[in-house]
């Protein structure tokens, strides 16, 4: 079912298991990604994943 370590992979998913969308911001309240970014994540290459991650700190500040 689950384990106590993070999933492997070169660029780790920012999902922190909150998985609830904020209707005002359109962002997940946990990882601050859009629905499209979450849905697409698994199919992105490492550079594309890093590009998503790079946007998250600014979104956190803007909250």
């Amino acid at each position: 079912m689950k384990r106590d370590e993070a999933p492997a992979g070169d660029v780790q998913s920012p999902c922190n298991n909150v998985c609830r969308m904020n209707p005002d911001s359109g962002l997940c309240e946990g990882c601050l990604r859009t629905l499209d970014e979450i849905a697409a994540w698994s199919g992105l290459d490492d550079d594309e994943k890093r590009a998503v991650l790079a946007q998250l700190p600014a979104r956190r500040t803007a909250r």
Partner: peptide, 18 residues
Amino acid sequence: KLPRSIRVIERGWLSANN
């Protein structure tokens, strides 16, 4: 490489992949 017909929605440990 996965076939184009397969998409994985990956989250964390509380929700399994869809």
